[in-house]
Amino acid sequence: MSYNTMYFMLMWVRTASALPLVFLLMIHGVSSDDWTVRYSPSHICALKDSTVIMNCTYTYPTGHQIKEVFWTKESVKDGVEPSDLSEDPEYSQRLQYLGDQQQNCTVRLSHVTLKDSHEYYFRIITNKDKAMGIAGVTLAVTGDFHEVYLFF
């Protein structure tokens, strides 16, 4: 949306009565088809045996109902569904989902190992569709402080 369009809408909103404004906002919410997954930061470097928190937020279209959310280290390939990390024996005792089923998809991974160096993705499944962050969180695990310093 251009600056001029936003300015015009703001000026219109200032002069509009409250009831049409509420109606306008309701229409916008119904027509929104926004799927977003945001990771912050998108690259994490961690020491072996430390705990990592992968911050994540997401949005999905109005009218959808969340059926399932999970983290995976697989992208969607050839129509094959990625697997839920919390069901993987290597992760199940170390992975804790801290998010909700509305907008927060943050996860904690404890006692990280060198094998945990990977790209991780968040997956959303609703009653109407599925989505996944295109780029995930890249986790690099290193053995000691000197290696972390050299990594940067």
Score class of each variant (00 low, 15 high):
93 Q>V: 06
82 P>T: 03
29 G>V: 00
141 V>A: 10
140 A>N: 14
66 I>K: 07
123 R>F: 15
152 F>A: 12
101 Q>W: 13
146 H>C: 06
78 D>R: 05
136 G>M: 00
142 T>D: 10
128 K>A: 13
54 M>N: 01
104 N>Q: 13
111 H>Y: 12
111 H>N: 15
129 D>R: 12
102 Q>C: 10
137 V>I: 04
29 G>C: 09
8 F>M: 15
3 Y>M: 12
33 D>Y: 07
148 V>Q: 10
28 H>N: 05
115 K>L: 10
4 N>C: 14
103 Q>W: 06
13 V>G: 13
11 M>S: 11
93 Q>M: 07
40 S>R: 02
80 V>Y: 00
118 H>I: 00
59 T>F: 07
115 K>A: 12
145 F>Y: 14
82 P>S: 04
143 G>W: 10
89 P>E: 13
128 K>L: 15
46 A>R: 01
62 T>A: 08
2 S>E: 15
71 W>M: 06
76 V>I: 12
85 L>Y: 03
46 A>Q: 05
78 D>G: 04
152 F>Y: 15
67 K>C: 13
41 P>C: 08
54 M>I: 04
18 A>T: 09
150 L>S: 14
107 V>Y: 00
117 S>M: 07
30 V>M: 04
119 E>A: 08
141 V>R: 08
106 T>F: 02
140 A>K: 08
50 S>T: 12
88 D>C: 11
30 V>D: 00
147 E>N: 11
98 L>M: 09
114 L>T: 09
133 G>W: 01
20 P>T: 08
141 V>F: 11
24 L>E: 05
47 L>E: 13
146 H>G: 05
113 T>A: 10
31 S>I: 05
57 T>P: 00
8 F>D: 15
137 V>Q: 03
51 T>R: 03
152 F>T: 13
81 E>F: 02
149 Y>H: 07
75 S>A: 05
7 Y>S: 11
52 V>E: 00
54 M>P: 01
36 T>N: 14
101 Q>D: 12
12 W>C: 12
65 Q>W: 09
